[in-house]
Amino acid sequence: MSAILKAARGGRIPINPAVVISNRPDALGLASAKRLGVETRVIESRGFAGDRWGYDQRIVSALKDCGVTPENGLVCLAGFMRIISPQFVRMYRNRILNIHPALLPAFPGLDAQGQAVKYGAKCSGCTVHLVDEGVDTGPVILQDVVRVRDDDTAESLSERILRREHILYPRAVNLFATGRIKIEGRRTIIEDPPA
């Protein structure tokens, strides 16, 4: 999230970050967003365990209050450890991005780095994908490979993948913002920049 905000503030992505929302008041991203002059909101998820859409309606309301609409907005998930309701996904169809610390479709869900190490994978990495109604199943936009070393732990692999995430996610947001992502079924085509 911070990498995206810094890239936008530095003029490397033609977007205007409108709001950073967290379900945890102690999330580090909130302080980072405030330092960069981006509005923040905390919408706690306690009490919504069985009502994803009830919680997501509060998120949608905050997004719309800040001008992030299904017609013109982009929602970027970063460390948001909740499964989004199908209603939210349908409302913002092809306008929700997520980053995952593995080369999807391998190692979806939680502890992807630990899964890669335990499995004995020789490479892992990170994936920016569009969010669909599944868990880490949306169309892939960009991926970057990180070699898994023989002495890696989940923590050491996580550190190296995170450095790549900070480069890859802003790049994917830039592709979206400049209209260079074309979706054909499950595939995304990255179009050349205009001449």
Rank of each mutant, 00 (worst) to 15 (best):
A49W: 10
D51F: 10
G54S: 09
D56L: 04
Q57T: 11
Q57Y: 08
R58Q: 13
S61I: 04
A62Q: 14
L63K: 09
L63E: 07
L63H: 04
K64G: 01
K64R: 15
D65N: 13
D65K: 13
C66P: 00
G67A: 11
G67H: 12
T69S: 14
P70A: 14
P70L: 10
E71P: 01
N72K: 13
G73Q: 10
G73N: 08
L74V: 11
V75K: 07
V75S: 06
V75F: 09
L77K: 06
L77I: 13
L77N: 04
L77C: 15
G79Y: 05
M81R: 12
R82D: 01
R82Y: 01
I84K: 00
P86M: 05
Q87K: 12
Q87P: 00
Q87G: 03
F88L: 14
F88S: 05
V89R: 00
R90T: 10
Y92T: 01
R93Y: 09
N94E: 15
R95G: 03
R95A: 07
I96T: 01
I96Q: 02
N98G: 02
I99M: 05
H100D: 03
H100E: 01
P101H: 02
L104M: 02
P105E: 01
A106I: 01
G109D: 04
G109L: 06
D111N: 13
D111A: 12
D111K: 11
Q113G: 09
Q113R: 12
G114I: 01
G114E: 07
G114L: 03
Q115C: 04
A116K: 06
A116W: 00
A116P: 02
V117W: 03
K118Q: 15
K118H: 11
Y119F: 15
Y119T: 09
G120F: 08
A121R: 09
K122I: 07
K122R: 13
K122Y: 08
C123F: 14
C123N: 14
V128E: 03
H129Y: 06
H129P: 00
H129G: 02
H129D: 03
H129F: 07
G134E: 05
D136K: 08
T137F: 01
T137Q: 07
G138R: 03
G138F: 08
V140F: 06
V140Y: 05
V140D: 04
I141R: 06
L142H: 09
L142P: 09
Q143V: 09
V145W: 06
V145L: 11
R147N: 12
R149Q: 14
D150F: 07
D150C: 07
D152N: 07
D152E: 03
T153L: 09
A154P: 07
L157A: 08
L157R: 10
S158T: 14
R160T: 04
I161H: 08
L162S: 15
L162Q: 15
E165S: 11
H166L: 15
H166V: 15
H166D: 13
